[in-house]
Every structure is written in structure tokens, then in C-alpha cells.
Amino acid sequence: MSVKESKSIQQVLFSKRWWILTALILVIFTLWTAEFQEANTTAVLAGTLRHSTPLVLGAMCGLLCERSGVINIGIEGQMLMSAWGGFMVASTSGSLLLGLFAGIAIGMMMGGVLAGISVGLRGDQIIAGTVINIAAIGITSFFFSLGRTLPSGKTQVIKLGPLADIPVAGRVLFSNKPITFLTLLLIPTVWFLLFRTKWGLRTRAVGEHPSAAETVGVSVIGMRYLNVIMGGGIAGLAGAYLSLEAVGSFERGMTNGKGFVALAVMIFGRWNPVGAWGAALLFGYASAVQTQFQFRDWLTDDPQFIGIIPFVVTIVVLAGFVGRARPPASIGQPYSRE
């Protein structure tokens, strides 16, 4: 019945023509804003990666939850709590590694809170997420004390030997800080887990049609707890990235909406880690270009205008290209057997 059609190269090129065109425009645009200098181009691309890291992590948190049927709008709060907790532990103990673990652990705890309310108690998932966001602002502001620093400084750049010396690409990809590297590994790992393993198949089944999963002996409640807590851990990693790797300190409300942008990134990426990475890179790229504009003093009469560039670019490109995405069918609905 199923006839596998092998498409010719022309057909493939034709069907992807808009993507190819966009890529070309982006490349030319990048070179132009970088005034055709290698150092500038590297800076734009490195900036892209830097901006994209917390977004793709947040998006992976979101998609782990939603693929199993739980909406997580508390990513912002989970990130903020972890940024704070990771920083406090690192600054007290002097160990960045301990801080990183603390960030992840706090994220998982926040995931546990979301799962407890929305899966265990079958509460409303949107309200549970909102509670987390509000509580996170309150808690981190209340316990935050000014003047703390990281005794050992931020995480340091690791160069992967000679690979890191390749012009442009090598400098962007192989010369990064630890959490960034970890993120680059995590993206294909999560993709593989989701689409190639038992756990992934069951997760997707639970998110689409929980009672079908239940009838083959898969525990819907168990899978949802597991996924939401794991997702929380990834949001925790994003938080630790912000305070320990990007900034090197904690500031009030330092997530600054990234948890919400991550949700958009997740949707644009169609609940797929690789897709989300693409969307996050695009958003990161727009932010990096914006920084370049500021360096060059272009359009600085209208700083607000520059500020919205990343958002506008993201919305236009993604809304135009990605098409209609369908969320997992059971999201938002608490599960009970009868």
C-alpha cells in the first residue's frame, strides 16, 4: 500500500525554496551588518548562540511537559527560582558545580510543585503555572541580598582543541562555556529520547490520548510526573545558565520574559527539540543583530524600535513559514480514569 516516493534533488530544492531563500537573505544580511569582517560575523553568530541557549532550554522544558499533556506556563518562574538558588549556593559554597546542581534540583522541585497541583490534585494547569511565576518573583526578591558575588567568577570558556581555531564556525561552536555545550548535547539527546525510545513513544501517547496509553498498561499519572519534573530540571539548567554563565550574578526578575518567549519558541518549533532549536536560533539571531546595530550606532535615535526587532523578525518569519502547528491533543486536561 504505502509507496515510498523518492524525490529528485530538483523537487526537494523546489519544495524547500522558501527556506533556502530565507537562509540566503539571512546570510547576506549577516555579512552586511558585520560589514564583511570576520570578527564581526563571529560576534553575531556567537551572540545568536548565547541568546538562544536559555530559550531552547526553556522550550525543551515546555515540550517535555506538553508532550505528556501538561501545559507549563511556569517556565519563567522555574527559571527564575533556579537562577536565584543556583547563584546563592554557588556564592555561599564557592563552587559553580554545586550551584549548577542546586539550580537543576530547584527546577525539578518546581516541576514537582506543578505536577503535584496539576497532575496529582488535578488542578488547573494554567493557574498552577501562574502561581509558580508569582511565587518565584516573591521568593527570589524576598530572600535576595545585595552585594553577593561569585567567588570564583562566571563559568569559563572551554576550547575544544584545534576545532576551536577554525575561523567563524569553529569559534562559534567549539569555543563555549560549559552550560552552552551541555545544551548543544541536550538538544539531540532529547530529540532521540522523544522519538526513538520507549519512554518517548509513551510520552507522546500519554499526551495525545491518555486513556489509550492507560489501556496498554502505561501509567498516565506516572509519566506526567516524570516528564514535568524532568522538564523542571531543564528549566533549572536555563536558570543556572543565566546567573552562573551569562551574567555572573543574580538580579531581580533577571529572566525578563525569557520563559514566555521559550513557550513561543516551543510552539514555533512544533513541540520538537530540533525545531525549537531552530526557532531559538532565529530569535537569538535577531537579538544579536540588534546588538550589532547598537555597536554601529545605527538607528539609535529610536532605541525602542531596535528593541522590538527580535520580536518582529521572529513573528514574521516563523508565522509565515512554520504554518499551522498542532499541540498534543490532551494538554490542559487533568486525567482521571472514568
Binding site: T197, K198, L201, R202, R204, A205, E208, H209, S211, A212, A213, T215, V216, G217, V218, A329
Partner: peptide, 20 residues
């Protein structure tokens, strides 16, 4: 029917008892 609409026939049949 307890079938997951977006999964394939094979995936639906082995779900919960997957060869792995």
C-alpha cells in the same frame, strides 16, 4: 477504540510492549 490518532499503526499496536 483506544488508538492514538497521531501515531502509526505499528506504534499503536506495540505501545506498552515495544520491542526494544
Amino acid at each position: 477504540f483506544q488508538l492514538v490518532p497521531v501515531l502509526t499503526v505499528a506504534e499503536n499496536i506495540v505501545l506498552g510492549k515495544e520491542p526494544a
